[in-house]
Design a protein around this nucleic acid. Structure first.
Length: 614
DNA sequence: GTGCCTCGAGTTCC
DNA sequence: CTCGAGGCAC
């Protein structure tokens, strides 16, 4: 058996992506969340919107595929698009039925949370301790660690449990509550109680009830999840970036702790941004030991008057990222001094400048700054970019220090490079791990266009914009040619690209050094043309459509989101490239332009008919 | 010109 | 996760 990747788990593509949730932190934001939903759906103030509220289990999400009512695959969430195959381990979980009853659909994907009970957790830790093994910090980590065991016999000895909360495909159901009840009737556990209602009062009562119940539950929850109950609304609402518009998490207030701030260190990011980080006297908060916390920027330190040596209150924002809430004023040491922010880069010594009106101070060292160079390389191999297994941030740093990886192309040259001493003789490396690394590097020589664009680390070009660019230009040669021909106007016509983004893009491609890096890289790679996601068979896929006038049945945002879901491009103005103009009430100049250019004009109903929604 | 929304870039810990 | 800022709609 050779081919097993070093992580040991097979990758699994989710047919329907597993998404994350946006958050509300108080009741104002809760109201905002409801209001936005109503606005999007074009509902009036009197129209209610029913939400289903459930406990948010602090575990790890898992997707269970049943075929012929038998469990055939279990996968972790991963990056939402692609997770890991943990089927064998999940088969050992009692709460997960191997087979569904006859009234369940033959083919179905159930989603839910794997978790560990609190009592089970402390017993497991006791057992691990007597066996002289490492104990887990909290039930969540214990559950995650147990699921990722390569030997499913070990997983079987761990007290894992499962709550179901959703289906990948909701057709055949009217409401989220129906889905919940169905999952329950198929033999899954669902957290009790839940609550469905229209107003804020019921939600508040439910929130308080669960918060009160929290300490008596045998499992950890970190808040409440609200979902729009009507599934037809859910599908109309759709998604923004990584999260559904129709759901939100309402987290319980974060646990806080007091500790000493030992030092403030300045880190340099790939764009040269100087970011302050607090080094803390280690302390347990929210179940994990925290020794660092972000301080965001210069102004944040000044605003909170944070000084080295202060006692500070820290919390984990959203129970994840540690942050300094405030200084404990009466514990300040005599003679402490306000923190002076450096105006030179700690890595290369270049001047660090803060542009007028900006919050961030940046190193001006550019190409000569080693910190920026390493960070760019880390970005290049990161999860949303090349995602090279076994080549994480630490290894990149090591390779950089030893001088064997200086540019992205060096990564692909490693295999044939003469390294002295050879890599397999380095500490922590062996024959096998070197072979695995080279294999996973080779695997990534074929890469999707959008990932490649993202990997370049051009300022302001993140995941979403890289995808837009890939969608617009289609292939790498076309994109590169357009950039080097400085086709600025075309860029500005792309949605979400304005003057600032366009300048950063053109600036990148105008730089000799960058061009050389690209020439060097291209030799090693096969950059795949952009594949428009799904729905390629929809009538409007690949078409450019412009909406104008007032629409009656859909709001503008909704129409746009729907069109994009079906693979269409939505533009703001009519040109010869426009395929359809959808004219609502009182359409004006755009309609006239469309007629001049002989662009097909549709009524709102005509459009709905075209996309099969009528 | 202003306000909203979304994105990007920074961050921690396991 | 948070923050700042760019893009776009009004």
């Amino acid at each position: 058996m050779g081919a097993a990747p070093s992580s040991g788990f097979k990758k699994v593509r989710h047919a329907v992506p597993m998404l994350s949730l946006s958050n509300v932190f108080d009741w104002d934001e809760y109201q905002e969340f409801r209001q936005k939903i109503k606005n999007f759906l074009g509902l009036s103030d009197e129209d209610g919107i029913e939400l289903l509220a459930e406990q948010k289990i602090d575990g790890l999400s898992c997707s269970l595929r049943y075929e012929g009512r038998k469990l055939v695959q279990a996968a972790t969430r991963g990056d939402g698009e692609e997770g890991e195959d943990i089927t064998e381990n999940v088969r050992t979980i009692k709460d997960v039925p191997d087979e569904l009853p006859a009234h369940a659909p033959e083919f179905v994907t159930v989603r839910g949370e794997i978790y560990m009970g609190r009592k089970d957790f402390s017993e497991l830790n006791k057992r691990l301790e007597t066996e002289g093994k490492k104990i887990f910090a909290n039930p969540r980590n214990a559950a995650a660690g147990s699921v990722r065991q390569l030997d499913s016999k070990i997983t079987a000895s761990r007290p894992l449990r499962f709550f179901g909360y959703a289906l990948a495909d909701n057709s055949n159901f009217q409401t989220q509550k129906d889905v919940r009840d169905a999952i329950h009737s198929w033999g899954f556990k669902v957290p009790e109680p839940s609550y469905a209602g229209f107003g804020i009062d019921g939600a508040m009562t439910y929130y308080k009830e669960i918060e009160g119940l929290r300490s008596t539950l045998d499992y950890d929850i970190d808040g409440i999840v609200y979902k729009v109950n009507r599934l037809d609304y859910q599908s109309r609402l759709g998604f923004i970036a990584r999260a559904p518009r129709w759901a939100a998490a309402h987290k319980f207030p974060a646990e806080q702790a007091v500790t000493r701030l030992n030092a403030i260190e300045i880190q340099v990011g790939r764009t040269g941004a100087l970011t302050p980080v607090a080094r803390l006297e280690p302390i347990t908060v929210g179940g994990v030991v925290v020794s660092n916390a972000t301080l965001h920027n210069e102004d944040e330190i000044a605003r909170k008057d944070i000084r080295v040596g202060d006692m500070v209150i820290i919390q984990r924002a959203g129970d994840v990222i540690p942050q300094v809430v405030e200084v404990v004023a009466d514990k300040r040491l005599a003679g402490s001094e306000a923190y002076v922010y450096p105006d030179h880069c700690p890595a290369c010594g270049s001047l660090a400048i803060r542009e007028e009106g900006e919050a961030i101070r940046r190193c001006t060292g550019g190409l000569i700054c080693p910190a920026q160079a390493v960070e760019r390389l880390k970005h290049f191999v990161s999860r949303l970019a090349f995602d090279i297994e076994g080549l994480g941030a630490k290894i990149i740093e090591e390779f950089w220090e030893k001088g064997i990886v200086k540019t992205p192309a060096d990564i692909f040259r490693l295999k044939d490079m003469t390294i002295n001493p050879p890599l397999k003789e380095w500490e922590g490396w062996g024959e096998k791990s070197v072979a695995n690394l080279f294999a996973s590097i080779d695997q990534r020589r074929v890469i999707a266009l959008n990932r490649f664009i993202y990997a370049l680390g051009i300022r302001q070009i993140g995941e979403a914009t890289a995808k837009r660019l890939a969608g617009h230009y289609g292939s790498w040669p076309v994109l590169r040619a357009a950039m080097q021909a400085e086709e600025r106007d075309e860029l500005l016509n792309i949605e979400d690209v304005g003057p600032s983004v366009a300048d950063d893009l053109l600036g990148f491609f105008a730089e000799d050094h960058n061009r050389a890096v690209l020439d060097d890289l291209e030799v090693f790679l096969t950059i795949q043309d952009y594949e428009r996601p799904q729905n390629i068979d929809s009538a409007v896929a690949g078409k450019t459509v412009v909406f104008t006038g007032t629409l009656a049945k859909l709001t503008r945002t909704e129409a746009k989101a729907q069109a994009e879901r079906l693979g269409a491009k939505v533009a703001g103005s009519v040109s010869a490239k426009t395929d359809y103009v959808v004219a609502g009430e009182d359409a004006g100049s755009k309609l006239k332009k469309a007629q001049e250019l002989n662009v097909t004009v549709l009524s709102e109903d005509g459009w709905l008919q075209l996309i099969g929604q009528n």
